[in-house]
Design a protein around this nucleic acid. Structure first.
Lengths: 225, 225, 225, 225
DNA sequence: GATGAATGAGCGTTCATTCAT
DNA sequence: TATGAATGAACGCTCATTCAT
């Protein structure tokens, strides 16, 4: 039984389809990586689409084949970054539970791992994506909402475990927002302004200590006890 | 004795010069105010120079007479904002000294007064001036440096007064940076994302409590005692 | 009473204002003329804005200062052409009244004067502006509506004068539309396809004779008599 | 006797070849129909090749296999339309001879049948193919030439039959061009601008009456008789 | 000082066309 | 034959900046 040229066994179909899919995603990631690096280094506005295409070694048209427009590039980038960031923090809470140790480990994961491994991503989320119009802002808000949601959830579980209440109705939310504010500005300050990445581990320890103190100060003895 | 065209008595000179000066500064402020409002509302990039000129009721050329370029407009704006912000925080410390109460009052001044009175300025410094090229970033850095300097100074005086040391060599700086990070993100979160300015006072109380807890956690008994 | 530099007499104001206005309109017309010629010669789509600017000896920005966009250029052009065409036809009716002679003279005015003097305008209205999107089509429709309105008005007056009725409820409108259809295709045929402008006068005579016969065939004895 | 892969009996060849041919033409027509509909609805320039491929349920490449380029699509479309239109008019003359009745019936065939059955084709030939470059214009000219040729031929035969001459050397041609001009603009006016297809039959009667009057006015008693 | 028309480099985006598979 | 991802030239348009008046 000779195999003709036209015969398409399921294996062939899935093979080529899979290869297509793989190449497709690879291209996407290549373009996204090129754009991320350029946005971080040169700035979102000063980076032209042609430069991105060149850096990714594709044509301008290819970039537009995979991404609706320049803004979409940034949004998709934020998607990835948001996911990565969430996983970093989430992993810490999973390993150490919703305890004060979990909060510490989450902070270490951010400063020791995320900031050190992905300074470009830090630049994108804390610098280049700021003030870039409604769509990007929406995505930024969504990412921060998810992050604050995660932290708030851990916070509530921690408070239950410790048998404490929050000092006020906004306390839990303010804590989560404050934590993210500290992450953001401390990272920004030392990575972009002081360019002192080598001490980031030590600095992270202090920031985390600050956070822990902050949290505890908004916990209060459970009155119902 | 008829006054010739060329005759300029000292009185005349100073009079007209002063008037000139006054008008000059008034124009500057008018343009700056128009630009601030537009940048905050429409975004830095989406606001054209013509729109600014229109809003300030001057010509485009006039804007360029008073400001080198669009970037300069933003830089001068940041100058004013930085000065105002410093005064708000500085006043609190002056009134209440470099004590924990001073830190609290500084926070209240920020949330209760600055954020409520100048939401546009908050938008400029925390949103529109972010990621806008080297010159603006330099100015932003300078402002944050001055603010961290002020807070750090108060922090050191407070630590001396209380007879405590900082937990580590970076502790003082990390505290100041963290405080500003909290200010920034909490303000941003509630003003721009939740659009909840009415509860900002209550929220500010929680944020300040978080800060106080954070500071105290990085103070430690003075070993030299 | 020496006139100071700043003194602005009404004459001064009106002088400079008038000069501005004149220059403004002159520029407008220059650009419009350049665009008309290029659109007619090279085609609307094959003519880039830069080429238009070059031909008008202004910058691209200047074109956009006077016209919203490329489409607007075409629309304004049609405005002028529509006005000119109406005046040509209208003048004939004014001179010769709403008689059959008026219809003849209107036809002669179109073929002998308009087509010969403004072949580019013929190209614009009958070729380049066709099938160019909703806005342009709207303008085309408006022009044709006005022209048909003029002709229909003359037609009704002529029918009253002659004491005749129209053969049917659509007759008057169909006549006007048919007349314009003849103008259009005859002009197009001989100017662009046969490139025979020299015989246009003679051709126009025949077209007008055709029109006269057509009109009379849709007039019928007034039954109310 | 097993059939080898290579063996091609004449029957096989013709069978498969015919099937191929049929499928080929079917595909062509499908693509052409999709393009026609889209060009008519969205406009020639606003319709991308991908949209046409999608609508025809083939790939972009397939469109380019059957048609040289986008322009070719329009040209082939005009071929079909021209043929169809010629047949409509030609049938009327065949049935009723080169008499005045033939001219009437040709007009009715156009307004009652062609315009009502193929409004998209009317849009293509009178709107979308106008001003689209040299090649398309050439084809348009060819179609109109054939149509005017047909009508002129009938006209000459009719004049001979009636024993009349034409009023001038251009008269016959001007009549044919005028007739087509009336067809075009009346159809355009009522289909696209008034969107009044329901009264088209009645309108067609008037237009035809106009044409008849026009023709007769350019006929004159044969002097040689 | 003040004006605002003019500049033109540069941008993001489109889309007809090609070609490796 | 058929596919559809990839190409890249070309386009319309913006807007910060300048300068003659």
């Amino acid at each position: 039984m000779p195999a003709t040229k036209k015969t398409k066994t399921p294996e062939n179909v899935s093979r080529s389809a899979m290869r297509r899919q793989r190449e497709r995603e690879y291209r996407c990631q290549t373009i996204l990586a090129a754009a991320e690096s350029l946005f971080a280094k040169e700035g979102y506005h000063k980076t032209g689409m042609e430069k991105i295409a060149d850096a990714a070694e594709v044509s301008v048209g290819a970039v537009y084949f995979y991404f609706k427009n320049k803004e979409d590039l940034l949004v998709k980038m934020l998607d990835d970054i948001g996911y990565l960031l969430r996983r970093h923090l989430g992993d810490a809470f999973e390993k150490y539970g919703a305890t004060m140790e979990g909060f510490k480990q989450a902070g270490y994961a951010f400063f020791d791992d995320f900031c050190v491994d992905y300074p470009d991503k830090v630049a994108i989320i804390f610098r280049e994506s700021v003030g870039q119009g409604a769509v990007v802002e929406e995505k930024r808000k969504a990412i921060f909402d998810k992050l604050t949601g995660d932290v708030a959830s851990a916070l509530h579980r921690a408070s239950e475990k410790q048998g404490v209440d929050f000092a006020s109705r906004f306390a839990a939310e303010v804590i989560t927002v404050s934590i993210l504010g500290i992450y953001e500005r401390v990272a920004y300050h030392y990575i972009f302004w002081k360019e002192n990445t080598s001490d980031l581990k030590e600095i992270g320890r202090d920031a985390v200590a600050f956070i822990v103190g902050g949290i505890q100060n908004l916990f209060q003895e459970n009155k119902t006890f």
